[in-house]
């Protein structure tokens, strides 16, 4: 089965699968040796790592990137020129309040479908798409959806949950740490995390925190659970509607993200927020002060260059100090 690689959450895996192709959400790893895209001042480390990982992968039959961030939009230009795999740019509107913007996204999914057919996929009928939406929805096996994200030895689920499970298996409870003091519920938000930076969750746990919710781009903020309501009429229209409303700070206006955050903070009683972003990620970086003003809770901003800093003593110390202040 041909594999289609993507990383943006606005790409519905169900749509790819419905074409008889294998969706793979690529969470980039460091690529050794010659890089397709060199280190360039101002270039987002995640975007660069994604492009280099794609270029280094041998089992990729197609790549889809989106316009949700300018850097990835421009990565498309380079991928087209530098790799021998078909690349598709999915136009995801920044605005979301108009019917025409929603229609544009739906039209883009249809165009994406034609790209998939050109790659050897089969245009899905309603039944096939419904079947895939069901497969990825109710109690979905996230390991199917995100095989790169969830190593086989870990149970499926959003990363925060994965790490909670890991921690429990290490002998700790979700509410108490090894010394018996109460753990600090923390929300984690931010952009995507490269594979090695996912250690952030473990570090938070080890520093006495408890992941109240995972609002990173690879966490439950972006995972769409489509139940049968979405299948009652045109499944593609409803799939598009569900994905189109993923709350993200890059939308204009980004009030849906704040609404999501308000609900998460209220329902999970988080006492602080950790925001992670890569350097040169303008959209998350710019949001930090506003979120801080808005939630009136302590916040810690961690930025990284994608060199595995999340496991560094410096970051560990900062997280530790943050937890101590919240205890």
């Amino acid at each position: 089965m041909k594999t289609i690689v993507y990383t943006c959450p606005y790409v519905p895996a169900e749509w790819i699968a419905a074409h008889g192709l294998q969706p793979r959400r690529l969470i980039p790893r460091p690529v050794e040796g010659t890089a397709t895209i060199p280190q360039i001042e101002g270039l987002c480390p995640y975007a660069r790592a994604f492009a280099n990982d794609v270029a280094a992968s041998e089992d990729v039959d197609g790549v889809v990137v989106t316009t949700m961030c300018d850097q990835m939009r421009r990565i498309f230009d380079l991928l087209v020129r530098r790799i021998n795999v078909p690349v598709f740019l999915l136009n995801v509107p920044s605005t979301w309040q108009t019917v025409t913007a929603r229609q544009l996204y739906l039209g883009e999914l249809e165009r994406f479908g034609r790209f998939l057919v050109r790659l050897g996929g089969c245009a899905p009928d309603r039944e096939k798409l419904t079947q895939e939406i069901r497969r990825y929805s109710v109690n979905k096996e996230l390991t199917d959806l995100y095989p790169a994200l969830y190593p086989s030895q870990l149970p499926p689920g959003p990363l925060s949950w994965v790490w909670q499970q890991t921690f429990q298996s290490m002998g700790g409870g979700s509410e108490r740490d090894l010394e018996g003091t109460r753990r600090v519920p923390i929300g984690v938000i931010g952009g995507p995390l490269m594979e090695r930076d996912q250690v952030l969750f473990r570090v938070i746990l080890e520093c006495g925190g408890q992941i109240a919710f995972d609002g990173t781009e690879t966490g439950d903020r972006t995972i769409r659970s489509l139940d049968d309501r979405y299948l009652s009429s045109d499944p593609l229209v409803n799939l598009a509607r569900a994905y189109f409303h993923i709350p993200d700070p890059s939308r204009r206006p980004n009030s849906e993200f704040y609404q999501w955050l308000r609900e998460k903070l209220a329902s999970h009683s988080a006492r602080g927020l950790v925001l992670h972003h890569y350097v040169w990620c303008d959209k998350w970086h710019a949001e930090f002060e506003r979120i801080k003003e808005w939630i009136k809770l302590p916040m810690l901003r961690l930025d990284s260059e994608g060199r595995g800093e999340m496991d560094s003593p410096r970051v560990r110390n900062r997280i530790h100090a943050f937890m101590e202040a919240l205890r």
């Binding site: 961030c69 850097q71 920044s94 204009r252 206006p253 303008d282 959209k283 710019a286």
Partner: peptide, 15 residues
Amino acid sequence: SVGATCDDFSAIAQR
């Protein structure tokens, strides 16, 4: 105007 614009401006305008 937003969408296919630079992230800097979009982020600053949102701020």
